[in-house]
Protein backbone atom coordinates (compact mmCIF):
# COMPACT_ATOMS: atom_id res chain seq x y z
CA UNK A 1 0.00 0.00 0.00
CA UNK A 2 2.78 2.41 0.87
CA UNK A 3 5.64 0.15 1.90
CA UNK A 4 8.12 2.23 -0.12
CA UNK A 5 7.77 5.15 2.35
CA UNK A 6 9.96 3.25 4.85
CA UNK A 7 12.80 3.01 2.32
CA UNK A 8 12.28 6.65 1.26
CA UNK A 9 12.63 7.71 4.91
CA UNK A 10 15.85 5.69 5.25
CA UNK A 11 17.15 7.18 1.97
CA UNK A 12 16.62 10.74 3.28
CA UNK A 13 18.47 9.98 6.53
CA UNK A 14 21.35 8.24 4.71
CA UNK A 15 21.62 11.12 2.19
CA UNK A 16 22.05 13.62 5.06
CA UNK A 17 24.72 11.39 6.70
CA UNK A 18 26.43 11.01 3.29
CA UNK A 19 26.67 14.80 2.82
CA UNK A 20 28.04 15.30 6.37
CA UNK A 21 30.58 12.51 5.84
CA UNK A 22 31.59 13.96 2.46
CA UNK A 23 32.32 17.34 4.08
CA UNK A 24 34.33 15.64 6.85
CA UNK A 25 36.42 13.67 4.34
CA UNK A 26 37.04 16.82 2.28
CA UNK A 27 38.26 18.67 5.40
CA UNK A 28 40.58 15.78 6.31
CA UNK A 29 41.94 15.67 2.74
CA UNK A 30 42.56 19.44 2.75
CA UNK A 31 44.17 19.29 6.20
CA UNK A 32 46.70 16.58 5.39
CA UNK A 33 49.82 17.87 3.62
CA UNK A 34 50.89 14.57 2.16
CA UNK A 35 48.53 13.28 -0.48
CA UNK A 36 48.68 9.53 -0.36
CA UNK A 37 46.89 7.13 -2.59
CA UNK A 38 44.97 5.10 -0.04
CA UNK A 39 43.68 1.59 -0.67
CA UNK A 40 40.38 2.40 1.01
CA UNK A 41 37.01 3.29 -0.43
CA UNK A 42 35.71 6.51 1.18
CA UNK A 43 32.73 5.92 3.48
CA UNK A 44 30.77 8.68 1.71
CA UNK A 45 31.09 6.73 -1.56
CA UNK A 46 29.75 3.61 0.12
CA UNK A 47 26.86 5.62 1.54
CA UNK A 48 26.16 6.87 -1.98
CA UNK A 49 25.67 3.24 -3.08
CA UNK A 50 23.10 2.75 -0.32
CA UNK A 51 21.24 5.97 -1.22
CA UNK A 52 21.21 4.95 -4.89
CA UNK A 53 19.80 1.52 -4.04
CA UNK A 54 17.15 3.01 -1.75
CA UNK A 55 16.13 5.96 -3.95
CA UNK A 56 16.21 3.94 -7.20
CA UNK A 57 14.24 1.05 -5.73
CA UNK A 58 11.72 3.33 -3.99
CA UNK A 59 11.17 5.28 -7.22
CA UNK A 60 10.27 2.15 -9.18
CA UNK A 61 8.16 0.85 -6.29
CA UNK A 62 6.33 4.18 -6.11
CA UNK A 63 5.56 3.76 -9.83
CA UNK A 64 4.05 0.33 -9.05
CA UNK A 65 1.82 1.95 -6.41
CA UNK A 66 0.70 4.59 -8.93
CA UNK A 67 -0.03 1.72 -11.38
CA UNK A 68 -2.25 0.03 -8.78
CA UNK A 69 -3.98 3.32 -7.89
CA UNK A 70 -2.61 3.38 -4.35
CA UNK A 71 -0.73 6.64 -4.87
CA UNK A 72 -2.51 9.62 -6.45
CA UNK A 73 -1.25 13.09 -7.42
CA UNK A 74 -3.67 14.90 -5.07
CA UNK A 75 -3.87 15.24 -1.28
CA UNK A 76 -3.50 13.04 0.81
CA UNK A 77 -1.61 11.25 -2.05
CA UNK A 78 -2.24 7.79 -0.55
CA UNK A 79 -5.74 6.45 -1.25
CA UNK A 80 -5.60 4.35 1.91
CA UNK A 81 -5.67 7.57 3.97
CA UNK A 82 -9.31 8.17 2.99
CA UNK A 83 -10.53 5.31 5.16
CA UNK A 84 -9.39 4.70 8.79
CA UNK A 85 -9.42 0.88 8.32
CA UNK A 86 -7.31 1.11 5.16
CA UNK A 87 -4.99 3.58 6.88
CA UNK A 88 -4.42 1.16 9.78
CA UNK A 89 -3.67 -1.63 7.30
CA UNK A 90 -1.30 0.68 5.43
CA UNK A 91 0.63 1.60 8.59
CA UNK A 92 0.86 -2.10 9.48
CA UNK A 93 2.27 -2.81 6.00
CA UNK A 94 4.82 0.00 6.32
CA UNK A 95 5.89 -1.35 9.73
CA UNK A 96 6.28 -4.92 8.47
CA UNK A 97 6.96 -5.10 4.70
CA UNK A 98 8.49 -1.62 4.44
CA UNK A 99 10.87 -2.09 7.37
CA UNK A 100 11.89 -5.55 6.07
CA UNK A 101 12.65 -3.98 2.66
CA UNK A 102 14.84 -1.33 4.28
CA UNK A 103 16.62 -3.98 6.39
CA UNK A 104 17.27 -6.29 3.40
CA UNK A 105 18.62 -3.46 1.21
CA UNK A 106 20.89 -2.35 4.08
CA UNK A 107 22.15 -5.91 4.66
CA UNK A 108 22.92 -6.33 0.94
CA UNK A 109 24.75 -2.98 1.04
CA UNK A 110 26.83 -4.15 4.04
CA UNK A 111 27.76 -7.27 2.02
CA UNK A 112 28.66 -5.05 -0.96
CA UNK A 113 30.93 -2.88 1.23
CA UNK A 114 32.72 -5.92 2.69
CA UNK A 115 33.24 -7.42 -0.77
CA UNK A 116 34.40 -4.09 -2.24
CA UNK A 117 36.90 -3.56 0.61
CA UNK A 118 38.25 -7.10 0.11
CA UNK A 119 38.67 -6.53 -3.64
CA UNK A 120 40.46 -3.19 -3.14
CA UNK A 121 42.70 -4.70 -0.43
CA UNK A 122 43.57 -7.67 -2.67
CA UNK A 123 44.41 -5.45 -5.64
CA UNK A 124 46.60 -3.22 -3.38
CA UNK A 125 48.47 -6.31 -2.15
CA UNK A 126 48.98 -7.50 -5.73
CA UNK A 127 50.39 -4.09 -6.71
CA UNK A 128 52.77 -4.18 -3.72
CA UNK A 129 53.95 -7.65 -4.71
CA UNK A 130 54.50 -6.49 -8.30
CA UNK A 131 56.60 -3.55 -7.07
CA UNK A 132 58.62 -5.84 -4.77
CA UNK A 133 59.33 -8.33 -7.57
Amino acid sequence: MACFTATVAEAVVVKVIEKVEEKKELKVAEGSKHVEESARIPFSRKLKWLTSLLIGGSFLLAFEHVWHGEVVPWFPFLTAMNNPDDAAEMFHEIATVGVCMAVLVTLVWVGMCIAADAIVKRSAQETEQDHAA
Binding site: F4, G56, G57, L60, V97, C100, M101
Partner: peptide, 21 residues
Protein backbone atom coordinates in the same frame (compact mmCIF):
# COMPACT_ATOMS: atom_id res chain seq x y z
CA UNK B 1 25.16 2.40 -16.31
CA UNK B 2 25.62 2.30 -12.52
CA UNK B 3 22.35 4.17 -11.98
CA UNK B 4 20.47 1.43 -13.87
CA UNK B 5 22.10 -1.30 -11.75
CA UNK B 6 21.24 0.46 -8.49
CA UNK B 7 17.66 1.19 -9.57
CA UNK B 8 16.88 -2.34 -10.77
CA UNK B 9 18.70 -4.14 -7.93
CA UNK B 10 17.06 -1.85 -5.32
CA UNK B 11 13.61 -2.52 -6.76
CA UNK B 12 14.33 -6.26 -7.10
CA UNK B 13 15.29 -6.54 -3.43
CA UNK B 14 12.19 -4.64 -2.37
CA UNK B 15 9.89 -6.77 -4.54
CA UNK B 16 11.58 -9.90 -3.20
CA UNK B 17 10.46 -8.94 0.31
CA UNK B 18 6.99 -8.21 -1.07
CA UNK B 19 6.97 -11.66 -2.74
CA UNK B 20 8.02 -13.40 0.49
CA UNK B 21 5.21 -11.73 2.44
Amino acid sequence: LGILCFMYWGASLMWLVDAIF
